[in-house]
């Protein structure tokens, strides 16, 4: 059993623990490589099935290929997908690209608020109808009490302090200073009414592990990660106004693995192309305390 096998088995164990303990559960799906690996792991854990919906927070500023890819995977892998967004903020143009708020406030409104409202059921949920190949209003507005998220501890400072099962209080806040203990594969699965748990099966994975696994399992990822001849590619995906591509000639997964192992990115952080991290003082601690993924 090599290290990738160990990571895979631990993640599957966590996914199954989550499924056994939470009646109303969903998985956040950002369309990026991490959450696509997570989705693939779910299919391994449940032997070809994905017994819970995927939730995508659509900021309306995602790179267009991402949305296209989202609906393709949803169809090809036959999974339930739900999206939610902060329609009020978008309508009143309370966004950074509209020039009305700063980056951090924009993240808070279009991601954190949208996420919190979608999870609690206070905001509208749109569900993909596989027969009609279109989204329609989801009648179910039960709050999700278990939310699977694909964050990794090596991404940035606040995520490195996370637990596998991480509680959020009634205001969706993360109490960083007073986290529960977690040991011997026993997780926090009991929670007070109104609170919920974030579940992090990929916490131990690094960016390199993700790509090694994508290669080993031949998992399809969105083409934005590869250089299509212009010497540029995305290393991390997000909203186009705040996510920058990097100079790279990596054309396939092998090239990316080389780049990360011994090439130009061996000593440069993955999220260096994410502007909101810098505006949050080099980490995401402020955003994440409020419920950001």
């Amino acid at each position: 059993m090599d290290y990738l096998d160990q990571l895979e088995n631990k993640s599957i164990h966590i996914l199954r623990e989550a499924y056994a303990n939470f009646k109303n559960m969903c998985m956040l799906w950002s369309i990026g490589k991490d959450s696509t690996v997570l989705l693939y792991l779910a299919r391994k854990a449940f032997l070809g099935h994905v017994p819970f919906p995927l939730v995508h927070i659509d900021t309306a500023y995602k790179i267009p290929e991402m949305i296209e890819y989202r609906d393709k995977i949803a169809t090809d892998w036959d999974v339930n997908i739900i999206y939610g967004q902060n329609e009020k903020a978008l309508k009143s143009k309370q966004s950074f690209p509209d020039g009305n708020v700063d980056r951090i406030t924009c993240c808070k409104l279009l991601k954190t608020t949208a996420l919190n409202d979608t999870l609690s059921g206070n905001g509208k949920r749109y569900i993909f109808n596989h027969d009609k190949k279109a989204y329609e209003l989801d009648k179910n507005n039960e709050p999700y009490t278990g939310v699977i998220v694909g964050v990794r501890s090596d991404e940035e400072g606040s995520r490195s302090k996370e637990r596998y099962f991480s509680p959020r209080n009634q205001e969706h806040e993360w109490e960083l200073g007073d986290q529960p203990p977690e040991f011997w594969n026993q997780f926090k699965t009991d929670f007070a009414p109104g609170t919920h748990l974030r579940i992090h099966p990929l916490l131990d994975w690094t960016e390199l592990n993700i790509w090694e696994y994508i290669k080993r399992e031949n998992i399809p990822v969105v083409s934005l990660y590869f250089d299509n001849g212009e010497g540029k590619r995305y290393r991390s995906l997000g909203c186009y106004p705040c996510t920058y591509s990097v100079d790279s000639n990596a054309k396939d997964v092998d090239d990316i693995i080389f780049e990360l192992k011994s090439g130009k990115f061996a000593n440069i952080a993955e999220r260096s192309g994410r502007a909101q991290d810098k505006d949050d003082g080099g980490g995401l601690e402020t955003l994440r305390k409020d419920g950001y993924m």
Binding site: G157, S160, K161, R271, G282
Partner: peptide
């Protein structure tokens, strides 16, 4: 290194690689 998380490599309050 803790402060340098976003530019630096792999250091954080809890784990050092």
């Amino acid at each position: 290194l803790k402060d340098e998380q976003s530019q630096g490599i792999t250091i954080d309050a809890a784990r050092v690689f």
